[in-house]
Amino acid sequence: MSEDDDDIILSELPDDELVLQMHDDLYDGLREEIEEGVNIFLERGWEPYKILTVALVEGMRIVGIDFRDGILFVPEVLLAANAMKGGMAILKPLLAETGAPRMGKMVIGTVKGDIHDIGKNLVSMMMEGAGFDVIDLGINNPVENYMEALESEQPDILGMSALLTTTMPYMKVVIDTLVAKGVRDDYVILVGGAPLNEEFSKSIGADAYCRDAAVAVETAKKLMERKHNVLAAG
C-alpha cells in the first residue's frame, strides 16, 4: 500500500510483519508477492493451514469489509481474489497431506438464467479456505444440475447464487423440487447475491441468506455444528 513497497524484501521480515505485509499485498492484489510470502512461510516451517488462515483468509476478510463499506469496488476484489488463488494453489495439495481440518462439503452454483459468478467464486474460495470441499457447478444451472450434483456428491451444504431480480425466484424452484423429493432436510441451504435479502431467503425456505463470503463461512460453520449436534443427540 505504501510507495516504497518495492524496497521491501519479504524474506527479511519477521513472521508478524510478513503476515501484515501479506494482508497489504492481498489488498493490493499482488499475486506474485502472495505466492512468495506463502513459500517463505512454508520454508519457515509454518503449517499450510496456519498460512491459509492467518495470512490469506484474514487478508481477504479485510478486503471483504472494505468492499462492504464501499471503500473497494469489484475490480479490487477480483484482483485480491486472484492473488489469494495464487497462494491457495500452492497450499491446496499440502493441506490434504497435512491433515488440515475438514469442515464439510458444499455444492454451489449460480442459478438458471444468470451468468454472474464473481460473488459465487469468492464464496467458493473462502469456503475452501475455511476447510470445506467445494464443488462448483458454475453458472446458469437448471434444477437438474443441482439434483444430479446433490445425488453424486452427497454434500452437507447446497449454495445458490443469483444477481438478477429475474433469476432469484429460481432458487425456490430448486428448493421446491428438493421438498417434493423428500430430501430438503438432508442439506443446509445457503443463498446469496446482491438483490437477495433475509426475508426472501425465508420466503423460499432456505436455511440462511448470507450477505457476503465471510458471513457465508460463519453461517456454514454454525449450521454444520448444529447439524452434528442434532445427529449426536439423535
Binding site: 469496488f73 475490480p75 477480483l78 464473481i118
Partner: peptide
C-alpha cells in the same frame, strides 16, 4: 468502474 482501464487482464473474469 470495472477497472478495465487499469487492469485489462480482468476482461475474462468479467
Amino acid at each position: 468502474p470495472l477497472g478495465l482501464d487499469r487492469h485489462p487482464e480482468l476482461r475474462d473474469a468479467y
